[in-house]
C-alpha cells in the first residue's frame, strides 16, 4: 500500500479526528515534536533534536495528590490517546527499550503503561543520515522500524505504508480511502540508507566493558566531561527519575521528574556518602548502563545510536570513542 504525499495532510487530519497527533514541526529550522494544530507543515528533513520520550515519560509528571488529615490519596493518570507521526527508527527502538525498563523489569509502571497503551507510532524510515548517526552499528536499520505500529518509506512522491500491529491495522482502515496500490517505481532511493559512521559495537562489548570497570581509561575518558545532564536529557533511552513532593499545609502532590546520573545528588545516600563521587564514576556508570548493564539484563543494547549526545555534548565527548577503545583493546591514550 502507499500514501501519496499530496494526501498526507488529509491523512493526518483523519488521525487528528481520533487522537492527539504529535509530529515534528520546524522551530527556527530545527524539527521538534509538537502537538499538531492541524495546520503546521510537518518538518521531516532530519531527526528532532529532542527525542519523543516525554510522550511516555514526561519531564515532570504528577503521580498522586494526598491529604495527611483526611488520609485521602488520589492517583493522577493520563490516558490520552496519542499518535506520534514521523518518529525515526532509532526513537522507535528507544521506546521498545523503555518498555523493557518500565514494563518488563518485574514491576509494571502504571503511569508509563497508561501512556504507552494510548500511544500509536507511525515511523518514517530515514532517507538520509546525519553525520552523528550510528544506529546501524547498534543493530538497527535506518530503513525499517519493526517496533512501530506503522512504518512509512519515502518513495519520492509517495510513502509506502507497512503496518506491523493491530493498532497499525486500525490506521490503515482509517486511511482506506487515501491508500492506493504500490506503483513499484521509486524515484527516490529509500530503503538502502546506511550510516556513514560505524561504531565498534562488537557482540562481546558488554563483557569487555564490565571487565574493564577499574581500567584507568575511565579517568582519561571523563577528563573533559563537564558533569552536566545534557546527554541524559536529550537521550531517547535515559529513563532515570526522581520523586518529589510539593506540600501545601496538610495536602500536597507527589510528582516525578527526570534525573540524570551525571548529577552530584543522583547517587548520594541519606548519610551523605556518594559511591560515585566524581565525574569519572558517573560517566563510567552512564556508558556501562547504555552499553553493558542493559544488555546483560534485557539482551539488547540500550544505546540506539541516534547520535544526539555526540552532537550536543558541550565538551564534544563521543561515546563511540569509548566503544572503539574497548573493542580494539587499546589504552585511552594509545
Amino acid at each position: 500500500m502507499e500514501l501519496k504525499k499530496d494526501k498526507l495532510t488529509e491523512a493526518l487530519l483523519l488521525l487528528r479526528g481520533a487522537s492527539n497527533v504529535i509530529l515534528p514541526v520546524s522551530n527556527d529550522g530545527a524539527p521538534v515534536f509538537k502537538l499538531w494544530d492541524g495546520v503546521a507543515e510537518p518538518c521531516l528533513s532530519a531527526n528532532t533534536s529532542l527525542p519523543p520520550k516525554d510522550l511516555l515519560f514526561p519531564r515532570s509528571e504528577k503521580m498522586y495528590d494526598y491529604n495527611v488529615k483526611t488520609g485521602n490519596i488520589s492517583e493522577i493518570s493520563s490516558n490520552k490517546k496519542q499518535t506520534v507521526f514521523g518518529i525515526r527508527p532509532c526513537d522507535v527502538r528507544s521506546i521498545e527499550n523503555l518498555d523493557h525498563a518500565f514494563l518488563e523489569s518485574g514491576y509494571t509502571d502504571s503511569y508509563y503503561k497508561t501512556r504507552r497503551d494510548g500511544l500509536t507510532t507511525i515511523a518514517l524510515a530515514c532517507t538520509e543520515t546525519a553525520r552523528t548517526c550510528f544506529c546501524d552499528s547498534m543493530g538497527l536499520s535506518p530503513n525499517d522500524a519493526p517496533g512501530a505500529d506503522i512504518v512509512l518509506n519515502d518513495r519520492g512522491d509517495a510513502y509506502t505504508v507497512k503496518s506491523n500491529t493491530e493498532k497499525g491495522e486500525e490506521i490503515t482502515r482509517l486511511w482506506k480511502s487515501l491508500l492506493s496500490k504500490e506503483t513499484g517505481k521509486a524515484s527516490k532511493a529509500s530503503g538502502s540508507v546506511v550510516c556513514d559512521f560505524k561504531a565498534r559495537a562488537d557482540k562481546d562489548l558488554p563483557e569487555k566493558l564490565v571487565a574493564r570497570f577499574d581500567d584507568p581509561m575511565w579517568d582519561k575518558l571523563s577528563k573533559a566531561c563537564l558533569g552536566c545532564g545534557c546527554c541524559s536529557f536529550i537521550c531517547p533511552t535515559c529513563y532515570c527519575f526522581d520523586i518529589g513532593r510539593e506540600n501545601h499545609g496538610a495536602s500536597g502532590t507527589a510528582f516525578r521528574c527526570w534525573d540524570s546520573c551525571m548529577f552530584s545528588d543522583y547517587s548520594r545516600m541519606a548519610g551523605g556518602h556518594d559511591p560515585r563521587p566524581s565525574k569519572k564514576e558517573r560517566l563510567r556508570n552512564r556508558y556501562l548502563h547504555k552499553l553493558a548493564y542493559f544488555n546483560l539484563r534485557y539482551g539488547v543494547t540500550l544505546c540506539v545510536g541516534c547520535g544526539r549526545c555526540v552532537d550536543k555534548c558541550p565538551a564534544n565527548l563521543d561515546v563511540t570513542r569509548a566503544m572503539d577503545i574497548i573493542s580494539e583493546g587499546v589504552r585511552a591514550d594509545g
Binding site: 492527539n20 515534536f33 519523543p52 516525554d54 514526561p58 493520563s78 490520552k80 496519542q82 501512556r115 502532590t253
Partner: peptide
C-alpha cells in the same frame, strides 16, 4: 508542572 506540549495533557 507544565507537562510538555508534546504530552498533550
Amino acid at each position: 508542572i507544565t507537562e510538555s506540549a508534546e504530552a498533550g495533557t
